[in-house]
Design a protein around this nucleic acid. Structure first.
Lengths: 346, 346
DNA sequence: TTGAAAGCGGTACCAG
DNA sequence: CTGGTACCGCTTTCAA
């Protein structure tokens, strides 16, 4: 970028350049090596107490702060954990989980880098991520990583590459969070209740396929295994009008139940049903997912699929373990459990 | 950390050390300088087409990925934007905003580092952040920055330090997002509707004071300026039992309206009121905030305070501008507007 | 107990 | 047109 051609060091500029360990050394009257030893409390070397004090005071006075990049360049590795982020709001359940994870990683002294990778291919993303030399990458599935991509990351120093979702990538650690299971539980619950023609809401919002596709597929698998059960995908946007439109053409569809992707969509749709004069659950059974608190507020109370997420602590611990001992770690974990919660809407 | 004492370069190890520009140079039969020129498409230097091709092919073959830390060490600055994160889920409105911001920054080619700073003082946090030499810091208020802290960050290379919230810190850019205004609008709306004794829900969840305190204060300011209006803080947790307990002792409180912090708390409380046999809005008027879609689903439809947030794009643009030209930029922006939306619960 | 010096991986100046 | 080389800031032998 075009730097203005200014003299390298205007003597006495208003904001004196950021102090380096050299500056501290000079002020303390010692060498840079000594500064490093003191400030890092090096065990292997004995430094006299007066020297230590001098160094500390000098550092304090200058407001010295070590340069993380220089440090990790020298060290040959970073403490960066790369967390590719989805570009759509992913619902309270997952954002809470991600937030927890973030915190737990910080507590373990990792630096969390959020990396939005919209529109990047697996190759491009892997390259971009590798530039940061992260010690771990936790990919939630926005980007589909190939075996080759995983190798790229590993050669760039990643001790752990973690993928979530149903299918494992060779070379990566797999955290199994099978969204299909949610669809299975929902559909099975409806079938148990005697329903046979089941609609499955598929959000029209982009970026949710990651969740919605396997949930739909799970429901379909139930239909395949139980005689006489049918499943129909129902596109719907997260908006009152869209829900109303769907409710409007409902009777023509000949369905007797709906699995509404999650509780938010379910609430919207259930309200639309009621406004359209349909009775829940008599005319149509409604089930959501995620077990949101707010789902219990509507009447009838919303049935749902409760999803047991791992705590952020848990996953952070796993990551840490994989980083410390990449070989001696289980490469596949089941982290998610789903169970239907019957309330009054089914 | 204790490295296992292995030979520096086991010939033909399974994962060959990450290739450097030296490796590329060797393979292409040129110097590192040439590699750098070619890979960065240096304009100032003319490199022959055959050489370029050789270099590119070598880089491709080795799977060369430049080392971001080394690059920015040399460059003397990073493209890191540091985003301190709250440790509590902050509600859909703000998480959406943060997500947008994150994306917009990435599109402008910044690297977003989420930095949880729980339990750190301003001084500690500023030091920890400064280690990363971020080019910008966007503090949403989890940590209260002093003038001195801002100076520390600036000396460490931060071209923009941005604080949000009502009060500006000297030296920092202030993005004014005054939560008090939300309380003002809510209370004023209730007063307009003829209510006089107003309860204000204050979430018991920790970490929300940042929002709840100013919202309460805003309501109080209305009470002070209008004769005969009283405001009573009401602690409540985000749980059905807590809402039910509050509803249970409601009649004893002698209130005729409640501003319930936000729509989520409002929905919970309104349901509890109805379950307790209180009529909304006749016996008690309820208003929330944030204008969530779900708030329109209950009956009566929830009145709320709509909050106009800036887009993530907008803020990212401001950050970028401040980074490019730190001096030539407005230091104070009003980014939030709040307006009461009357529906049926008031 | 302390200091000199060799890098870590890039970039960019200056010669040739 | 290309190569040698001097840094960026820090850690860590190895000697003194």
């Amino acid at each position: 970028m075009s730097q203005s051609p200014k003299p390298p060091k205007p003597p006495e500029s208003p904001s004196p350049a950021v102090p380096t360990s050299t500056d501290v050394a000079r002020l303390a009257g010692v060498s840079r090596a000594t500064v490093s030893y003191v400030l890092n409390n090096a065990e292997a070397v004995r430094i006299s107490e007066p020297t230590r004090r001098k160094v500390r005071e000098a550092a304090e006075e200058l407001g010295y702060v070590p340069h993380a990049a220089a440090r990790s360049l020298r060290a040959g590795h970073t403490r960066i954990v790369l967390l590719p982020t989805s570009h759509v709001p992913i619902g309270p359940l997952y954002s809470t989980f991600l937030n927890e994870l973030q915190w737990a990683l910080r507590r373990l002294d990792y630096t969390v880098v959020q990396y939005g990778s919209l529109g990047l291919t697996g190759d491009e993303a892997a390259r971009a991520w590798a530039e940061l030399r992260p010690v771990a990458v936790i990919s939630l599935g926005e980007i589909t990583l190939s075996e080759h991509n995983v190798a790229t990351l590993k050669r760039a120093g990643a001790r752990a590459v973690i993928t979530m979702g149903p299918d494992g990538v060779p070379g990566a650690h797999a955290l199994v969070m099978d969204q299909a299971e949610v669809g299975v539980r929902a559909a099975a619950h409806l079938v148990d209740r005697g329903r046979r023609r089941i609609g499955v809401v598929v959000p029209q919002e982009e970026g949710l396929e990651l969740f919605s596709a396997p949930r739909l597929e799970g429901a379909r698998s139930v239909a395949r295994s139980v005689e006489g059960v049918e499943v129909l995908p129902l596109p719907m946007a997260y908006a009152e009008e869209s829900a109303a439109a769907l409710a409007g053409r409902w009777t023509g569809l000949g369905l007797d139940a709906v699995f509404a992707y999650n509780d938010e969509y379910a609430m919207l749709l259930m309200r639309a049903f009621q406004d359209a004069g349909l009775r829940v659950p008599q005319d149509v059974a409604v089930i959501g997912a995620d077990d949101l608190l707010l789902g219990r507020l509507l009447r009838p109370r919303l049935s749902t699929v409760h999803i047991e997420m791992p705590t952020g602590e848990r996953l952070a611990g796993l990551v840490d373990q994989a980083v410390r001992e990449p070989s001696a770690v289980v490469r596949r974990h089941d982290l998610m459990a789903a169970v239907a919660v019957a309330r009054d809407s089914t």
